[in-house]
Amino acid sequence: MKIAGFGVEEWLNKWEKSATYDISQSTISSMTMQEALALDGHQGAEFYDMLDKEKMNYGWIEGSPEFKAEVAKLYADVDPENILQTNGATGANHLALYALIEPGDHVISEYPSYQQLYDIPKSLGATVDFWHIHEDKQWYPDIEELKALIRPDTKMICLNNANNPTGTLLDEAFLKQVVALADQVGAYVLVDEVYLPLDHPEAFTSIVDLYDRGIATNSLSKTYSMPGIRIGWTASNHEVADIFRKYRDYTMICAGVFNDLMATYILKHRKQVLARNQQLVLNNLNIYRQWIASEPRASVVMPQAVSTSFPKLDVPDDIEDFCVRLLKETGVLLVPGNRFDMPGHVRLGYCADEATLKEGLKRLSVFLRQYD
Rank of each mutant, 00 (worst) to 15 (best):
Phe130Gln: 10
Arg297Ala: 04
Tyr21Phe: 12
Val178His: 15
Thr86Pro: 10
Leu39Ser: 07
Asp153Ala: 07
Leu313Cys: 07
Trp11Ile: 01
Arg297Lys: 02
Asp22Val: 14
Glu202Arg: 11
Ile292Gly: 01
Pro201Ser: 09
Asp321Gln: 13
Asp372Ile: 02
Leu159Gln: 01
Lys55Asn: 08
Gly186Gln: 07
Ile229Lys: 02
Gln138Arg: 09
Val240Thr: 15
Pro336Ala: 00
Ser113Gly: 03
Ser236Val: 03
Gln85Asp: 04
Pro121His: 02
Gly91Ile: 04
His238Pro: 06
Lys137His: 11
Thr251Asn: 12
Ala36Lys: 13
Asn87Glu: 05
Ala235Val: 00
Arg213Asn: 03
Gln304His: 03
Gly167His: 05
Gly104Ile: 14
Leu282Phe: 05
Tyr224Lys: 05
Val178Met: 12
Asp242Arg: 06
Tyr224Gln: 04
Ile150His: 13
Trp11His: 03
Pro316Gln: 01
Pro343Thr: 14
His238Gly: 11
Asp372Gln: 11
Leu100Tyr: 09
Ile215Leu: 05
Asp40Pro: 08
Arg151Met: 14
Cys158Met: 01
Asp142Pro: 06
Ala355Gly: 11
Asn218Val: 00
Leu124Val: 01
Pro121Leu: 02
Asn93Glu: 12
Lys55Trp: 15
Leu39Glu: 08
Asn57Thr: 08
Glu70Lys: 04
Arg245Cys: 00
Thr223Phe: 13
Thr264Arg: 14
Gln115Cys: 09
Lys14Ile: 10
